[in-house]
C-alpha cells in the first residue's frame, strides 16, 4: 500500500491499464511530453511511448471524434478534455456520436471510450474551467458518468471505466486532486460502476452526495453528530445511472434525505434523485426531500466562488430544516 493523492491514483490507474491492454491509448492536449496540465499523465509517454500516449491538436471535437474512429479499430481510447468546461466544443462528438455508437450501428460497433476531465470549483480558475456540467451528461442516454470522491475510489473506478465497453465520462474534481492522501493498493483493483457507496452510517438522515460534496457532507455529519443528529452519507460514485436501491434502503431507515450537489439547482442530478425518492418511498418520508445546490447563475468569477459554492454549513442548515419540518 502507498499513500497517494487522487492525481497520483489516477496516473497509477492509467499506467495499470496501459500495461494490461495494448489497445488502451491515452491522448489529449498536453498529455504527452508535458504530462498533462495537472500531471495526470506524468511519465506515461516515457514509459509507454508516443504510440500509446500522445498529444493531439487543440480541438476537443476532433479529439472525441477521433476516439470514436479509433474505437472501430479495436482501440480503447482514454482521451482527456483539459477542463470539462471545454466539452461544449465536443458536445456532438460526445452526446451525438460516442453515446449512440452501439445503438446506431445495431451493435456492429461500440465505443469503449473513457473521457477523463477535471472539473469543480474552489480553485480560482478562469471561466469555463470549474463548472459542474455532469447534469448535461446524465441526460444523454448511452453514457455512464462517474465521479470519484478520493484517491482509492479514483483508481478503482477509473480502471473499471476503461474496461467498460461503452463510453464513460470520468470527472475528476480539481479540489480533490492534491487536497489529501489515502492508502491506495499498488496492485490493480476495480470498483463496480453503477453502485453507490455508503461512506458513513447513520440513523436520522440520509445525505446523498458525490465528488467534493461527499467531504462537505461528511464534515456536516460529524458536526451534526455532536448535536445529536445521526447522518448516513452516501457517495454516489456513478451519477448516471443512479444507484437508487442504495439510496432507498437508507431513506427507508432514516425517513429523511438531503441531496447535495455542487452544480446549480435547476434540473441536474439532485433533482432526478429527489423525484425518484418521492415516487418510490413517499410513505417512508417524514419531511420533503431537500436539496443543497449552487444558485442558478453561471459559475461565478473566482471572487464570488466561496459564497457561491455550497458548503458544510449549508448542508447542516438544510438537515436541520428537514429535522424540524
Amino acid at each position: 500500500m502507498a499513500e497517494m493523492t487522487m492525481i497520483q491514483a489516477i496516473t497509477d490507474a492509467l499506467r495499470t491499464e496501459l500495461k494490461n491492454d495494448d489497445n488502451v491509448l491515452v491522448f489529449g492536449e498536453d498529455v504527452g511530453q508535458n504530462g498533462g496540465v495537472f500531471r495526470a499523465t506524468e511519465g506515461l509517454q516515457d514509459e509507454f511511448g508516443e504510440e500509446r500516449v500522445f498529444d493531439t491538436p487543440l480541438a476537443e471535437s476532433g479529439i472525441i471524434g477521433m476516439s470514436v474512429g479509433l474505437s472501430t479499430q479495436g482501440y480503447r481510447p482514454v482521451p482527456e478534455i483539459q477542463f470539462f468546461g471545454f466539452v461544449f466544443e465536443a458536445m456532438d462528438a460526445v452526446v451525438g456520436q460516442s453515446a449512440r455508437m452501439r445503438y446506431r450501428s445495431g451493435g456492429r460497433w461500440h465505443a469503449p471510450i473513457t473521457i477523463r476531465s477535471p472539473f469543480g470549483g474552489g480553485v480560482h480558475t478562469p471561466e469555463l474551467h470549474a463548472d459542474s456540467l455532469e447534469g448535461f451528461m446524465t441526460q444523454a442516454p448511452g453514457l455512464r458518468v462517474v465521479i470519484p470522491s478520493g484517491p482509492y475510489d479514483a483508481k478503482g473506478l477509473l480502471i473499471s471505466s476503461i474496461r467498460n465497453n461503452d463510453p464513460v465520462i470520468f470527472l475528476e474534481h480539481m479540489k480533490l486532486y492534491r487536497s489529501f492522501r489515502e492508502e491506495v493498493p499498488e496492485d490493480e483493483y476495480t470498483i463496480d460502476l453503477d453502485k453507490a457507496n455508503v461512506v458513513r452510517k447513520g440513523t436520522d438522515m440520509t445525505l446523498v452526495a458525490y465528488g467534493a460534496m461527499v467531504h462537505s457532507s461528511i464534515k456536516a455529519a460529524e458536526e451534526l453528530e455532536e448535536e445529536g443528529i445521526s447522518c448516513e452519507v452516501i457517495d454516489l460514485r456513478t451519477v448516471s445511472p443512479i444507484d437508487i436501491d442504495t439510496i432507498l434502503e437508507s431513506v427507508k431507515k432514516t425517513n429523511r434525505a438531503v441531496v447535495v450537489q455542487e452544480a446549480q439547482r435547476q434540473a441536474g442530478v439532485a433533482a432526478g434523485i429527489v423525484a425518484e425518492i418521492q415516487e418510490r418511498a413517499i410513505l417512508h418520508l417524514e419531511a420533503p426531500v431537500f436539496r443543497v445546490t449552487a444558485p442558478d447563475t453561471v459559475y461565478p468569477f473566482s471572487q464570488a466562488e466561496e459564497v457561491w459554492l455550497p458548503d458544510h454549513q449549508d448542508i447542516k442548515e438544510k438537515v436541520k430544516e428537514s429535522m424540524n419540518f
Binding site: E51, S61, G62, I64, G65, M66, S67, V68, G69, L70, S71, T72, Q73, G74, Y75, D92, A93, G96, Q97, R104, S105, W109
Partner: peptide
C-alpha cells in the same frame, strides 16, 4: 459506419479510423 446525419461529424471520426489503421 451508417450514414451520418450530423453534417461533418463523420470527418473527425474518419481521422480516428485512419489513425487506427495506421497503428
Amino acid at each position: 459506419l451508417s450514414p451520418q446525419i450530423i453534417i461533418g461529424a463523420q470527418i473527425t471520426q474518419a481521422a480516428g479510423v485512419a489513425l487506427g489503421m495506421k497503428r
